[in-house]
Simulated assay, not measured.
Amino acid sequence: MSPKIPAGFRAAAALVKPVLLGSTRRVWSGSEHLPADRGFIAVSNHVTYADPFTFAHYLYDHGFAPHFLAKASLFDLPVAGRFLAHLDQVPVHRGGSQARDAVEASAKLLARGDSIAVFPEGTLTRDPEMWPMLARTGAARMALEYDVPVVPVAQWGAHQLLAPYSKRPNLCPRKTVTVQAGPPVDLEEFRGRPLDIEVLRGATDRIMATLTSMLEEIRGETAPPKPWDMRREGGGR
């Protein structure tokens, strides 16, 4: 069984859910793919700052307390930092001696049967048409190192609530938000091998290709043949 949702998450949901319920029409599917008997990593595409809320809403309503990997600087904020720490959110330090702390904290959560929610791209996509871009390898590394499943959760529509990079929400009228979980990504060919760049990049690309394919189905459109690469195309914004 998935862990019982702690009181802190229920309190947070009591504040946030009414806003989401009043501003969205939810088209949700695939919850049967969320493992109830072990820890797992849920990965999603990232278009808008509203994505964590719709992603968390989906996981929470299906019985999972969402634990996000968040920028370490957020934990320094007087109120928000204490709130994030209380909810067992995981601070991510870029580089330096603390860089691995997030992996070790995530491992503890996974070992006790919790779910980790990750946006593998690490930031909002820079793709002009909002398709997933080339992702970081952290989620794949955790999945392979700790032998846990990766569940793809594609979402679309949250950008209508909050446009990319905007801080001004558009809550009325209600926006349709589609969130769909798929079967765990098949990473068997990568398991048990040294975690070198070839293995990590191969596993990461498999994860993102799965998400992109799911998003093509949701959007009814075809993604570009190659994902946007900030190193090749430039950062955009």
Rank of each mutant, 00 (worst) to 15 (best):
E217H: 10
R126A: 11
Y165A: 06
L87P: 02
K167Y: 12
S166I: 07
G138W: 01
G182T: 12
P52C: 03
A36C: 08
T212L: 04
T222R: 15
Y60C: 06
I207R: 08
P91L: 10
P18G: 04
L187A: 06
E121Y: 07
A13D: 11
F55R: 00
N45C: 09
A72Y: 02
H67V: 07
S213A: 14
F75P: 03
D186S: 13
P194D: 02
E233Y: 12
D205P: 05
Y165M: 15
G63Y: 05
E216L: 07
E198S: 05
V199D: 01
R193G: 05
P18D: 07
A158F: 03
L211I: 13
H33V: 06
I207D: 02
G236W: 10
T125A: 06
E121W: 10
P173D: 12
T137G: 03
G220P: 05
P227E: 12
Y49T: 04
A203P: 04
S31I: 00
V92Y: 02
T54E: 03
A139W: 05
I116G: 09
R141H: 14
A13P: 01
S44N: 11
M130P: 01
P132I: 01
V103E: 03
G234I: 14
E189W: 03
P91S: 13
A117L: 15
L59V: 09
I197E: 07
H33C: 03
L74W: 02
G122F: 09
R237C: 12
H57S: 05
A56C: 11
P164V: 08
A102I: 08
S166T: 11
D186I: 08
L200S: 04
P91A: 11
V47A: 00
W156L: 03
A72C: 11
A107Y: 14
I41A: 06
G182P: 06
E104T: 08
F53A: 06
K167G: 11
I197F: 00
Y60Q: 03
V177F: 12
Y60V: 01
R237V: 15
E188R: 06
Q98V: 02
H57M: 01
L200F: 04
T204I: 04
L84M: 15
R38Q: 15
R126L: 06
A42C: 13
Q155P: 10
G22P: 05
T178C: 12
P120Q: 11
V148A: 11
